[in-house]
Design a protein around this nucleic acid. Sequence first.
DNA 1: TGTACATCAGTGAACGCGCGTTCACTGATGTAC
DNA 2: TGTACATCAGTGAACGCGCGTTCACTGATGTAC
Lengths: 199, 199
Amino acid sequence: VAADKLSTQVRQEQIAGAALDLIASRGLQGFNIDRLAKSVGLVPSAIYRHFDGKEQVLRAALSMFRDRLYSLVEEARDEADGPLEALELLLVKHARLIAGHKAVPHILMCSDVAAGDESRRAKVQRIFGGYIDRVGAIVREGQRSGVIRGDVDARTIALMFAGMIQPAALLSRAKGRGFDMNAHVRRVWRLFERGVRPE
Amino acid sequence: VAADKLSTQVRQEQIAGAALDLIASRGLQGFNIDRLAKSVGLVPSAIYRHFDGKEQVLRAALSMFRDRLYSLVEEARDEADGPLEALELLLVKHARLIAGHKAVPHILMCSDVAAGDESRRAKVQRIFGGYIDRVGAIVREGQRSGVIRGDVDARTIALMFAGMIQPAALLSRAKGRGFDMNAHVRRVWRLFERGVRPE
DNA sequence: TGTACATCAGTGAACGCGCGTTCACTGATGTAC
DNA sequence: TGTACATCAGTGAACGCGCGTTCACTGATGTAC
């Protein structure tokens, strides 16, 4: 019983998406060709019709991850009015993803994906750096308009922002239901907001 | 040419320590029996004289990691006077480890070590939870003595504290020399300090 | 103090499983005439 | 519109490498007498 034939373009997206889910739920260890193939309803060897190999699948997954991550920042920026509200909204959006067991962003960033060969490490670093840059841009906007203190550089504040989410993502993955992500986000935001408020 | 014979007790410590280093520098992927054996000057099969298997080595490494991590907190507490200074000192100690490419704590916590079977995940979670509890205890002390605001719970502040280090550890691992850890710590501390200061 | 024996850490060859990858094939899709 | 052919996604068997683990052995250490 053979699977339906779909174009390589469609399959590549399916496969990259499935790879992301797999890595998010089972770590890089749990990401193998067998499981990947099964989760898109194909046979392992069929993956090679659409990718040159496992590493290329990982690259595609990373690119998809990057696009989603950056989109999240843009969304927050568009929907909020004002930089401070944009940051708060972004934090809430992250929390929602994490609570919905779709903690792709911060698990991926954390996991051993960042090990491996030089060019992969460079790619992960570029993605994270780009994220910090984008958050930093929002911060700088806030500094110009005077709602965020100007005596600490924007990059540091952006890193602190990222730091609100990562440990929480870990705890949430470990504890599952036992961790109230929304409550945490509300509390931690108050700390952050006070830290960055101008004197 | 055979290696010197050492007691199992000595070898177990050597091996667990080497495992930690290996995981810190190469991720869980790079942690294999061949490399592990080589780094303690033994032949792969010799590892099995001292551990039942790879998983047991990992457990021992985790335990060693836990002891070191908790010791760091106690040291900071002992050497500082006052809870706020203790936190700052702890932050500096972490930064020093990370800058010295011994970023074991936060890489390990982040890596796929936290995936894997149920009992290993539980162990990693317990270690991280214990760390947060210990930092939280310092925070609570500060709240009692009035140097830390009392209207945010200690746990949240402890998580925020952990959040100052993790993203920086990632950046540092990726960028190497290109990231000035000490400068970052000084800047991020000012943010944190202002966030937790009483009104 | 010297000898005999038990214990045990270290060795290297071999085994076997997991898993990424290849390849000859099948059959559907789509295009040329 | 129908036929012939090229293209290409999907299949399953097989291969081979990496790597964790086992095992019979060697020889040093330490203990009993």
